[in-house]
Amino acid sequence: MNLFRLFGDLSHLASILILLHKIQTTRSCRGISFKTQALYVTVFVARYLDLFYDWVSLYNFSMKVFFISSSIYILYLMKVRFRPTHDPSIDTFRAEYLVGPCVVLALIFNYKFTFPEVLWSFSIFLESVAILPQLFMLQRTGEAETITTHYLAALGAYRALYIPNWIYRYFSEGVVDPIAVIAGLVQTALYVDFFYVYFTKVLQGQKFELPA
């Protein structure tokens, strides 16, 4: 564990708390892509099933339980509790176009051709693109509530912080995880446009609006 990874994980944790806060206080899931949230559930379940048979640490265990349960809870909020506030007609990204290629990539690129390892690779690839329906929705509506942009910023910061973590681990432990690194770089790159608008507008006190 190093500080980059710790703050990355905390940022990930914060992003979910911000999202929950947004849904609970506005009593609405407007502006949130159900598809992206459903993809995150898939990612967490596929990757963290090892919590039943591999013990890493209490930290690792609790985070996994939190990520799985909170992501399922968010789906419940969107699909049941605040269902009327979710508008599927603007959440139109075809998620199957992401899942299919990720299955194929996982079958080709994995550290061992076993079920848990292929599942792990699949979750890494899927996580790297899971935000696309959300970003697509943002692009489509051209604007976002400020709280939603804070959610995305925290999520992007989590990914960005994992990069110095890998550099640090390479020098301190000699560890390189090429699958995680390549997928992680792709994932972080997807946030570049968003961060540009976030820094130049939202953090200057303006509304998140994309140029028409």
Binding site: R47, D54, N60, Y162, N165, G174, V176, D177, P178
Partner: peptide, 10 residues
Amino acid sequence: VSTGSPHDEL
């Protein structure tokens, strides 16, 4: 140089 397996990152 070891790879990321077993996986200790979240």
